[in-house]
C-alpha cells in the first residue's frame, strides 16, 4: 500500500526547532565551554612550540592543529575525543525524550510523517555540531594568524576544509548511534549509558584488543617468511579498521599531514623513485583516505537506517 504526500513535509520546521533547542540548551553550553577551553589550550601550546620554527615549514597551520606537547594532546586529539561525546549528548534523548514528555503523539498528529521528525532531528544535530566546529576552526585560524603572523596558504585551507568534512562524517556516526539508542531504549538515561558504553569500548578497549590480536597474529606468522609476516600485519590492520575511531584517525593523518604516503605496511620496492618527505598534493592525499571517508559515511547511513526502521515500527502510545 502506497502512502501519499511527501515524507519531507515539516522537515525544516523540525530542523529549525531542534537546532534552536540545541543552541540555546544548557547541555550545549557546557559542551561548548569544555571543547573551547581544551582546544584553545592545545592550540596555545602548539603556537608556543611552533614560534621557534616559523618559516621552516610550508604547512604551518596543519602543524598547529596536530602538534601535541606533553601533557596536552593536540587540537585534533581533543576533537576526536570530544566530538563523539558531543554527538551522543545531542542525540541520546531525541526520541525517548518526546515519549517521556508526552509530545510525540501530539507532534505526529500534525500533518507530517515520522521520517521528517527523525531526519530533522538528525540534521539539526549535525547542523549544531558543524556550527560549533566551524566556529572553533575559525577561532584557531584567527589565533594562529595573531600569534604566528603568517597567513594560511590555499592548500592548507582546502585541507582544513576536508578535515572539517571528515569530522562531520565522524560526528554523523555517533549522532546516528545516539538516535538509534534513543529509539530502542525508553529511558533516556539507559540510552545515554549504552551509547557512552559503545564509545568507551571503541576508545579504550578496542585498541587493546586489536593490539592483542595483532601480536597473536604475528606469533602465528613464519619468522623466516616475510610474506606471511606482511599478511598477518595487514590482517591486524584490517581488524583495527572495524572501529570508526581508527577510520577517523587514519583519515586525519593523511589529510593533515601531506607527507603521509600510505596508511598500511609498504614494501621498499613500492617506494622506488619516491622522494621521501616531500608532500603529496591534496588530491593524492584524498585518494589515500577515500575508503576511510566512505566507510565513515556508510556507517552513519547504516546506523541511521536502523534507527529509522526501528522508529517506523514503534507504537506511538507510550
Amino acid at each position: 500500500m502506497r502512502r501519499e504526500g511527501s515524507p519531507w513535509t515539516g522537515l525544516w520546521a523540525v530542523f529549525f526547532k531542534e537546532m534552536a533547542d540545541h543552541l540555546s540548551g544548557l547541555r550545549m553550553r557546557i559542551l561548548e565551554a569544555l571543547i573551547l577551553l581544551s582546544a584553545l589550550s592545545a592550540v596555545y601550546t602548539g603556537t608556543q612550540t611552533l614560534r621557534q620554527t616559523v618559516g621552516e615549514d610550508p604547512y604551518l597551520y596543519l602543524k598547529l592543529l596536530t602538534t601535541a606537547q606533553d601533557p596536552l594532546p593536540s587540537f585534533v586529539g581533543f576533537l576526536s575525543f570530544f566530538v563523539p561525546l558531543a554527538a551522543i549528548a545531542l542525540a541520546f534523548d531525541a526520541v525517548n525524550g518526546e515519549y517521556a514528555r508526552g509530545t510525540l503523539s501530539r507532534i505526529l498528529s500534525q500533518p507530517i510523517y515520522r521520517d521528517a521528525l527523525l531526519f530533522g532531528k538528525f540534521l539539526a544535530g549535525l547542523g549544531t555540531l558543524s556550527v560549533l566546529l566551524l566556529a572553533l576552526l575559525l577561532l584557531v585560524l584567527g589565533l594562529g594568524l595573531f600569534t604566528l603572523g603568517v597567513p594560511p596558504g590555499g592548500e592548507e585551507v582546502a585541507r582544513i576544509l576536508f578535515f572539517f568534512l571528515a569530522t562531520l562524517a565522524y560526528a554523523g556516526v555517533w549522532l546516528a548511534l545516539g538516535l538509534l539508542f534513543s529509539v530502542l531504549f525508553r529511558q533516556p538515561a539507559t540510552a545515554a549509558l549504552a551509547a557512552l558504553g559503545v564509545w568507551l569500548f571503541f576508545a579504550v578497549f578496542f585498541p587493546i584488543l586489536t593490539d592483542l590480536a595483532a601480536s597473536a597474529l604475528l606469533l602465528r606468522a613464519d619468522p623466516f617468511d616475510p610474506e606471511s609476516q606482511l599478511r598477518q600485519a595487514t590482517l591486524a590492520l584490517w581488524i583495527s579498521r572495524l572501529s570508526p575511531n581508527t577510520l577517523f584517525a587514519e583519515a586525519l593523518t593523511a589529510i593533515l599531514n601531506p607527507a603521509v604516503r600510505s596508511l598500511g605496511p609498504i614494501l621498499i620496492t613500492q617506494l622506488e623513485g619516491a622522494v621521501l618527505g616531500t608532500p603529496l598534493p591534496l588530491f593524492q592525499s584524498l585518494l589515500l583516505v577515500w575508503p576511510q571517508l566512505t566507510g565513515l559515511f556508510a556507517l552513519a547511513v547504516l546506523l541511521f537506517t536502523l534507527a529509522y526502521v526501528a522508529f517506523q515500527r514503534q507504537e506511538v502510545r507510550a
Binding site: 502512502r3 504526500g5 533547542d21 508526552g102 509530545t103 501530539r106 498528529s109
Partner: peptide, 24 residues
C-alpha cells in the same frame, strides 16, 4: 488514514490523553 495520513491529519485535530508540551 493509512493511504493519505497527511490529508487526514491536516483536517482532524487530536488531543492525546495526558497531552505534553515542551516545558522549556
Amino acid at each position: 488514514p493509512m493511504r493519505e495520513p497527511l490529508k487526514v491529519k491536516a483536517r482532524v485535530g487530536y488531543l492525546p490523553d495526558q497531552v505534553g508540551f515542551y516545558g522549556e
